[in-house]
Design a protein around this nucleic acid. Sequence first.
DNA 1: AACTGTGAAGTTTTTCACAGCC
DNA 2: GGCTGTGAAAAACTTCACAGTT
Lengths: 210, 210
Amino acid sequence: MICNDKSCFSPETIKRLTVYLQNFKRLKKNNVEIVSSGEISKLLNVSPEQFRKDLSYFGEFGKRGVGYSTTTMVDELEGILGLDKKWTVALVGVGKLGSSLLNYPGFSELNVKFTAAFDSDKKKHGKIINNVEVHDVIHFKKIIKKRKIKICVICIPVENVQEVADMVVDSGIQAILNFAPIVLNVPEKIYVSNMDIYSEIERLIYYLNK
Amino acid sequence: MICNDKSCFSPETIKRLTVYLQNFKRLKKNNVEIVSSGEISKLLNVSPEQFRKDLSYFGEFGKRGVGYSTTTMVDELEGILGLDKKWTVALVGVGKLGSSLLNYPGFSELNVKFTAAFDSDKKKHGKIINNVEVHDVIHFKKIIKKRKIKICVICIPVENVQEVADMVVDSGIQAILNFAPIVLNVPEKIYVSNMDIYSEIERLIYYLNK
DNA sequence: AACTGTGAAGTTTTTCACAGCC
DNA sequence: GGCTGTGAAAAACTTCACAGTT
């Protein structure tokens, strides 16, 4: 459970808030100005009450009898999530997956940018991918400290990922996005998010198999 | 909530089961033969009761006073998840991310294989990536039907992903793994899993920002 | 003695249902 | 009339606590 000055809410609320934001951005781009919680509900497979309650933990953003302004909601949700400030992200592991992330579109709209990449492979050092230079991983701590980077995406094979995570934590990184299929052993104060394609496919297979 | 012949349990249980399986595989590879729920708990940040209860929905796999055999657990969990059979997967969108997935290691150990890839870009047709041929997307339905493929991974830019999803569903695919930051509109009977790096990074930023 | 399996209790999360406002 | 915001009720999920087994 997470508490702010107003009340307490589920971590699921935060997950959904990121989805709401995506959706309001798209609606705004499509020149939709007002939507009701009922319409949101149909678009996102979330009940209208859930949507309204999720927002209620942070304020009153809708107009009774009317709905929610997409422009207002984009601003408010960005504020709630902290996306109105700029964030820089480091990448460790410039393999196929890692470099595809460096080339991912849309981060700039998000106020989020990869500003440094690292690999242990000498052949990659000095390469520039989508304006991001690949450094030797031995310089990780120095560069992270200097640029005050707080978030690191790790795209390392599972065999080596724990030692990289140790280094990353030692360098002062506070949040990690891990693509390897393993639960990283890091101090509690570090926020870790796992993106594990194996686990997701296994889960789909379970449902198919029933 | 999900029910089997024994009882009912949370969808979270299935997510955790995939993590348990990963972990038991690794322990087995490292020649660990027996582990207790307490040890699992420390490795995976799951309470020992949670672990035991998750398993209890499917049977009794441990030995009282002893613990769980890694070999037994790998077999049992694979059985529960349906991973003891072979599964074939299609990929739509052979861009940077898509081709990095085709090259992902470890799928063979999983009884899961990409057997067909599709793209609309003519330059990619006929290419072979890690033994998988890239076809013209216009042949999607024909090939999916013929090979009886049930799972599709979609790596398409967000602007086009809904129309691709429509085609995928029309072709008889039953489960979709979607990498685009959008909630796909598909019939209820289709299982969809989203892997959204933007959403994950936004979530991390929320926690950092507090 | 050590560890599992599980009803019962406790906590968290979602849904209901309705008052309040446009 | 239509839609939001929210306490109260319901449902879902986790933890407790202990009986049962090796």
